[in-house]
Design a protein around this nucleic acid. Structure first.
Length: 498
RNA sequence: GGCGACGUAGCCAAGUGGUAAGGCAGAGCUCUGCAAAAGCUCCAUUCGGCAGUUCGAAUCUGCCCGUCGCCUCCA
């Protein structure tokens, strides 16, 4: 068994083999922080985080690089429009993005290069392209001469002439060919700029990825293992990266395997900065458990177009709660251990099944179904503590492998926020209950938890005397305030209704 | 117009030649004073439509219908 991945470059599923085992070098196109990150970003980076986790699990020495394109036209436009410094805009979107990634449990990249920190190297790459005849200096910048590169269009399966037909040239550009793209843009007055041999300016989009991946992952020009990004980057971004990189390489291709994540639709429409039809990721993560968002994405094949709806997110949230409850139950039955997550010893039945699924081009949907089945299977172990602990250890490890890492919050019943008008509602509900004991429940001086505890205590008294009507009235009163009671042998617990 | 993806139960979704995983929702049962939670059981004779290939098709081929994406900044 071994990992197979769909390679956009060859348009086929291939056995994954590192160029220089056990090293695996991955470059993923990161964020351009000129607007709020959205759920589509989350889907993409969540997937590459998963791929990285799995490669590490398989024993590879992974170097994961994810860039930040911290200079582009849009952040400059935004700066001019709002009268702020472009750096402040970039910084604020970047910080927000990093916070969201952290909440989603996406691990930090091994390297996170910023375009503006690599300007000298970018200029060196441009100089080499000019020397080789692949680029030329025009009035408003330095351009890549697309006609000079034979392989142009191969990744995206496009023919130059067909592209030409639909191409547009923007006013004020001085390209030789409509498909030529900027490597360096000369600065207009007031725009941020860096010095270059051709004139002060800034890097064009695309060149930073060619230059930085070369510097960090592949200084010898022999290629690295995996290049990733969203499917919308195939053309023109990745096509252009290849055009910029491969003519300068000793041994192309630039990347052995190109992996692209499917786009996310929001209410059946494409999310994009220009359409503006998206909710900022940071806001969305306030409404949904980040692990539920991860679970939602695990349910769909990574390369498929996926439609986000509130309904699907809510369903994923319920599924996560059940998974957590199953884990919690196993944890209790096994009598611990605490949350340490370690690779289970072979033979590991669950892990083998999960591996079989992930090996098949990261079939997370299938892997998830194995996870759901595991607690049920493990129930057959009865009271064999050692066996239960082993099963739990394996379960935790497999969950963590998929990024659904059990943490201390998994040990506790989930507890949502009480409604803001909880006390008012409780008073009204208790008054409506009318019973003798209900009238005696004293709420003064109690916080919400204490108030609930007092109602539960009153109900326990009622139950002790088999006053079921009173008991049910008190339970219903709490239910009207969004508090659901659960009786068990250990006593009565409460949760907040979703 | 060129390139591409997709259409599987009420909803989401896996499965790419051997007789339909899983999740959510729903139903029944067990447990419970009654509930809730949990566990068990059930829930597509069928995979957009029509032809064809085959012993056998959701899977392959052709045509048709429908949805979406890329070709312009995008994860």
């Amino acid at each position: 068994m071994s990992l197979k991945l769909y390679n956009t470059r060859t348009r086929s599923v291939e056995a994954f083999a590192p160029l220089d085992p056990p090293r695996v070098r991955i470059y993923v196109c990161g964020l351009t922080p000129s607007a709020q990150a959205h759920l589509g970003h989350a889907r993409s980076f969540l997937f590459f985080d998963l791929l990285r986790r799995y490669l590490i699990h398989l024993g590879f020495a992974v170097t994961y690089v994810q860039n930040v394109t911290d200079i582009d036209d849009r952040s400059i436009e935004a700066a001019i429009a709002t009268g702020t410094d472009w750096r402040a805009i970039v910084q604020s979107y970047y910080v927000s993005f990093k916070t969201s990634m952290k909440r989603l449990g996406v691990r930090e990249p091994d390297r996170e290069p910023f375009a503006t920190q690599f300007v000298p190297q970018i200029c060196a790459t441009i100089a080499r392209l000019i020397e080789g005849g692949y680029a030329y200096v025009a009035r408003d910048g330095v351009y890549y001469d697309v006609r000079r590169f034979d392989g142009y269009g191969r990744l995206s399966n496009r023919k130059l002439d067909e592209l030409e037909a639909g191409a547009r040239v923007e006013v004020g550009e001085f390209k030789r060919d409509p498909l030529d793209f900027a490597l360096w843009k000369f600065a207009k007055p007031g725009e941020p700029s860096w010095p270059s041999p051709w004139g002060d300016g800034r890097p064009g989009w695309h060149i930073e990825c060619s230059s930085m991946s070369h510097e960090i992952l592949d200084p010898e020009g022999r290629g690295f293992d995996i290049h990733g990004g969203g499917a919308d980057l195939i053309f023109p971004h990745h096509e252009n990266e290849i055009a910029q990189s491969e003519p300068l390489m000793a041994h192309p291709p630039m990347a052995n395997v190109w992996v692209h994540g499917g786009l996310l639709l929001f209410d059946s429409r494409k999310m994009s900065k220009s359409l503006g039809n998206f909710e900022p990721l940071a806001d969305l993560l306030d409404r949904y458990d980040p692990q539920a968002v991860r679970l939602l994405f695990l349910q769909t094949g990574y390369s498929k177009v996926m439609n986000f709806t509130e309904e699907s997110a809510a369903a994923a949230n319920t599924a996560l709660r059940r998974l957590q409850a199953s884990w919690r139950k196993m944890h209790a039955a096994a009598g611990g251990p605490p949350l340490a997550i370690g690779k289970p010893p072979a033979p590991a039945a669950l892990l083998e099944r999960v591996e079989r699924a992930l090996d098949d081009n990261m079939n997370t949907s299938l892997a998830l179904s194995e996870l759901y089945a595991w607690p049920v299977d493990s129930a057959a172990l009865g009271r064999d503590r050692a066996a239960l602990q082993a099963a739990l250890g394996e379960f935790s490890y497999a969950l963590d492998l998929l990024g659904l890492t059990p943490d201390s919050s998994w040990l506790e019943e989930p507890r949502a926020e009480l409604p803001a008008d909880f006390f008012d509602r409780l008073r009204i509900a208790l008054r409506a209950a009318q019973g003798d004991a209900a009238a005696r429940v004293e709420l003064d001086g109690a916080d919400a938890e204490e108030a609930i505890a007092r109602v539960i205590a009153a109900r326990m008294q009622a139950r002790a005397t088999k006053n079921w009507a009173e008991s049910d009235r008190l339970r219903d009163a709490l239910a009207r305030c969004g508090v659901v009671l659960e009786d068990s042998k250990e006593g009565t617990t409460w949760t907040i209704a979703v």
